[in-house]
């Protein structure tokens, strides 16, 4: 195959490779830098996952995961976050075709689904705290609230970021720097959904099945 490619390229000026073409456009540099940040964020989450995995049986005689977790609520949260990741993708498509109303619609649905996820999660936390399953109760619950709460904090800051970005779009339009921020937000939001896949599997489903 390489031979065929090489033969096809004979007589044509080869494309300059990236290392010879000078610095990459800012859009690529910014997105790559944000990608590195997201990976370091995932590494931080991996420490919380490791703490949870080590401490999941250290319930100190308190409630266990199987007694606390409500699978229906977890399924609803998962559905909300997955759907919001999808609408965030549709918003990216609208942004790349500079369609302002479709961008607003995608952002609105993404925001609503993210807010629904957060509401369900806070209701779950409030229910657990009401029956005495607070972070102080056991090492298991400390690790649980640290891991799931940190993800919830990320979702909350993502919602704030999305609202501010829509303000940018309304005030400045699809300028290059606004488009870069929208690309970074989409990366952030999809990465949060990937982390949630780990949480609902390791914390909730493994918690109720074992």
């Amino acid at each position: 195959m390489n031979v065929a490619v090489a033969l096809a390229d004979v007589g044509r000026e080869p494309l300059p490779i990236a290392s010879e073409a000078g610095p990459a456009p800012k859009r690529i540099v910014v997105a790559y830098g944000f990608w590195i940040f997201l990976l370091s964020d995932i590494i931080m989450f991996s420490a919380l996952f490791a703490a949870y995995a080590v401490l999941r049986n250290a319930t100190a005689g308190g409630p266990t995961g199987a007694q606390l977790f409500n699978q229906v609520s977890v399924a609803l949260e998962t559905a909300c976050l997955l759907a919001s990741s999808y609408t965030c993708g549709l918003m990216s498509v609208a942004v790349s075709s500079r369609n302002r109303s479709a961008t607003y619609l995608g952002a609105l649905v993404t925001f609503a689904l993210g807010a629904a996820f957060l509401t369900l999660e806070l209701r779950e936390f409030a229910g657990m705290i009401a029956i005495g399953a607070t972070p102080q109760r056991s090492a298991f619950l400390s690790a649980f609230f640290a891991l799931v709460g940190c993800h919830g904090l990320h979702v909350a800051s993502g919602l704030l970021w999305l609202a501010l970005l829509m303000l940018h779009v309304a005030l400045k339009g699809f300028r290059a720097n606004v488009q870069r921020r929208l690309l970074c937000f989409a990366l952030f939001w999809h990465a949060l959904d990937i982390i949630w896949v780990g949480i609902f599997t390791v914390v909730y489903l493994m918690g109720v099945s074992s």
Binding site: P16, A18, A24, P25, V30, A31, Y32, W35, H190
Partner: peptide, 8 residues
């Protein structure tokens, strides 16, 4: 030019 693709 064959730049790398931005993630996402």
């Amino acid at each position: 030019t064959s730049y790398d693709r931005a993630p996402g």
